[in-house]
Design a protein around this nucleic acid. Structure first.
Length: 261
DNA sequence: ATGTCACTTTACAAGTGA
């Protein structure tokens, strides 16, 4: 039996309602982690999701950020936020258990630009996330940490490493923060299945970046070894980034699909 | 690097965040 999990930064769940429904029909996932829902919990189109057969946990407030988890089985142990979050007013982390699997769904601080105050917040946010994970979980137990990390972990995760060298989303201090999570005991599931360069999961809306192949791999599924051992396939649904694929405009992120045996 | 998108507001354009 396969458990299929998708992570996708939707860039507004309202703007992506039709495409989200099509994605659920296309891949029939068991669990979906969404980021940048950009809506209060009580305004989210809950009935449409439930009508497709999913339980729903949400953590959103205001026009920015926001995360949600969908599951075909009942969600339990829902936890909003994390210990000592340096930006606790921003809903970025939602944890829940589905089918016996503990998930941490995250939308990392973007950072804007190296040197911007937001960049220092980003580094502090990752440090607090790491400390919380280390104090809460044991890497010998099943755990999946997935979402939009807003970091391309290696040069092979960037279309043009020289252009991106030292820039926000690819700078060394950010990459150190991701490596810190891997050093703790998490495994990058896509890299179990595919060598680089690529695939990418995000292309800027501007400058025709998608058409020109100017992408980054910012969306990751990291798992402890007991989960990694069950991973049989990882896909990027690159077609979902195309304007022609569905109704309405695409998100700037493509979904990442993970299969566990 | 920047050919965009989505959100909001003492709103019908402009600022913000990505």
């Amino acid at each position: 039996m396969t458990v299929r999990i998708i992570t996708w930064n939707v860039n507004s769940i309202r703007a992506r309602e039709s495409r989200l429904e099509a994605l659920l029909r296309r891949w029939t996932p068991d669990i979906v982690a969404l980021q940048e829902t950009k809506i209060d919990d009580d305004r989210l189109p809950r009935a449409a999701v439930e009508a497709l057969g999913y339980d729903l946990a949400t953590f959103g407030q205001g026009p920015y950020n926001g995360v949600a988890i969908l599951a075909r089985t009942e969600l339990s142990g829902v936890e909003r936020g994390f210990l000592a979050d340096p930006v606790p007013s921003e809903p970025r982390v939602l944890s829940a258990t589905a089918g016996g699997l503990r998930l941490v769904n995250l939308y990392a601080v973007n950072g804007k630009a190296v040197g911007d105050p937001a960049y220092l917040t980003k580094l502090a946010w990752f440090d607090a996330l790491s400390a919380w994970l280390r104090s809460t979980f044991d890497p010998t137990e099943p755990l999946l940490v997935l979402g939009d990390f807003n970091v391309a972990p290696e040069d092979e995760d960037v279309h043009d490493p020289e252009t991106w060298r030292g820039k926000n989303l690819a700078s060394e201090p950010e990459r150190e923060r991701v490596r810190d999570l891997l050093n703790w005991g998490l495994v990058d599931l896509l890299r179990l299945q595919a060598d680089g360069p690529g695939p990418f999961t995000w292309w800027d809306y501007r400058a025709g970046a998608f058409h020109r192949g100017w992408g980054l791999r910012l969306d990751l599924a990291l798992a402890t070894p007991p989960v990694a051992a069950r991973c049989t396939a990882v896909h990027v649904d690159r077609d979902e980034r195309k304007p022609s694929t569905g109704e309405g405009k695409p998100s700037d992120h493509a979904p990442l699909i993970v299969d566990l045996d």
